[in-house]
Nucleic acid binder design. Sequence first.
DNA 1: AGCACGCCGACT
DNA 2: GTCGGCGTGCTC
Length: 703
Amino acid sequence: MVGTAFERAEGAAGRTVARILLDSALPQLDHLFDYSIPAELADEVRVGQRVRVPFRSRDRKSFGYIIEFVARSEFGGELAPIADIVSAVPQLTPDVWRLARAVADRAGGSAGDILRLAIPTRQIRVEKQHLAAAEAAANAAAVANAEAAAESEAAAASAVVAQPEAAVAEPVAETQAEATAAPEQAIAAELVTGARLALTPSHGPERLHTGEWVGGWAAQLARVAIAVHALGRSVILVAPDYRDLDQLRDALEALGHAEAVRVDSRQSNGERYAGFLRALDGVPRIILGNRSAVYAPAHELGAILIWDDGDPVLAEPLTPYVHARDAALVRAEQAEAGLFFSGHARSAEVQRLVELGYVRAQEFPPRRTRIVHADASIAPEAFAGRVPEFAARTIREGLRSGPVLVQVSTPGYAPVAVCGECGDLARCRACAGPIGFRVVGRASCRWCGEYATDWRCGTCDSRRLEERGMGSARTVEQFEQQFTGTRVILSDGEHPRERVDARPALVVATRGAEPLAAGGYRAVVLLDAERLLSIETLRAGEDCLRWWENAAALAAPNGICLMASGGGPVVQAFVHGRTEAWLRSELRDRQALRYPPAVRVASVSGGPDEVERALRQLDGLPGVDHLGPTSIPPGGAARTPAGLVRAIVRFEYGQGSEVASRLRGALVADAAGASSRTKSRAPGRARPEALRLRFDDRGVFDG
DNA sequence: AGCACGCCGACT
DNA sequence: GTCGGCGTGCTC
């Protein structure tokens, strides 16, 4: 870990001042601070290291990262010295710093907020272990190289650099080459030159040679990742949740790549840090992870692959709320790396990029499951229990040879409770939210969770609650009666099931929680289309297409997908495979209405004066307007205090950096002035009227 | 966030 | 002339 002679000479000449980004949530501290380098640390300091520095007073210390060295400081005052180096390992690579800075600026946030996602907390034991292993591997490689050199001059000429694992990587590469099919190799070759592609994979599962089943999409992505890696480049492979990640991991392993670095929320801190160190150690890697994997310190990044970017889980729920797709777009541009969007349903954002010509869509149509529409309102027929008679027949037919999937809209027993006397909607006594049955016989509020123990109807004073609607649990109950002797399996958000076997079973799943069936489902039945489409969001159509396409993709190649209800343009687009045309017209509508992603949006909230001041900063900017401010209803799930307002700023993409920097300026001014303007404030609690910014919130118009 | 600096009114 | 109120701004 000691630098080369050259580096030390550099240090002596040009490294008298270290510029440091502090760990701080305060927006006004989101810039570099200059520190002097004490003589005893002069040989040790490196760009990217985490350090402790005095801040605010001589004996109060803060953490930060060394961003760069400069010969002299622009700062007028006397510089304080760096106190100590937290770890010799430079944790923040120049690439990741550049990315964090750009992404934070684009989203009106602090670079430190991005770095918190990018860099796991250090574990000394894990780090020691890693360094020891790396040294041992380097020594072993050196010995091997020496032996090879003794045997043949040619072998010595091509001797691998003494990097950990580089020596053992070679035999693996052979299997990988075999496992990588030609189309994926062509895609990989394009990606490493910086191509940006969108692909809709064929429906249907694929059997790996290990005997395991995964979605065909996962096998395809794994082959692309391995092909890029075989070209000597790192790959970042991002998927929304761990179920998708598990399929990708299985596919990678079956194709001969067992050493991918994994990044996910279920890992312990130590596991995460160990993976992080492996990504960091100067060897091309496949990095497989959730939304924070886009910030991994990839060496020689060749491509970023994103699965199902329309899934809202890819948006970070913490400030500055950046979506992995946007971070990937920034990073691919900076690193001149390829970008690959794969999904059974294209997001409106990627569709926009395709129409702009920024992303190229595949030309050939994917194979889709045969889809049949049985709309009860067009051909009225008897309902046999939970499903129309036609759907029941399809289910019976499928159950003869294998598993059948039924997708329902709502988890729990019954989504709605009404008064048993007058039929009015039951309301919670505590918060006036709607009451439903999450579990049979136990009514509770859907907003606050309070049990409706001694409920009384507000209209007729009755005490009798009745169930309305069909949740997944109630559907299971019905199916057990209707299809006696059949195995009925439930999979929902609370009890997700990753896989089912190929034996006949009726699988009831909420959208997004459908298990993968070995060999694929004989039939996939989609219920509750009207209910899903009636969800009050701007994205209802797009989301439905994604849920339905992902479910249809789980069918066996000769299976069938039945849309059991509904009508209208979205259902028609799905049933006839005209989803791209629908998406194009949807995007045109949003263009006309100035809705995202045709334009970008930022919500600005806080006290009326604070929001007013922020909006004034945008006066006179062309292509920028705003809706509101309107008052935010107090209370609710977020316990919003009274008196706050929110405005929605809309702007053209070209104005993004200007809008972001002006709003950010207002935020910094607000935060800086805050401590003085308001003196008597409850300690510990954040100022409720403080300005808050949120860019590109996909739910911003949903109320 | 905290903490020092600084500019006006009441005191020894 | 000095002490201390809190509004203002900075933190390398």
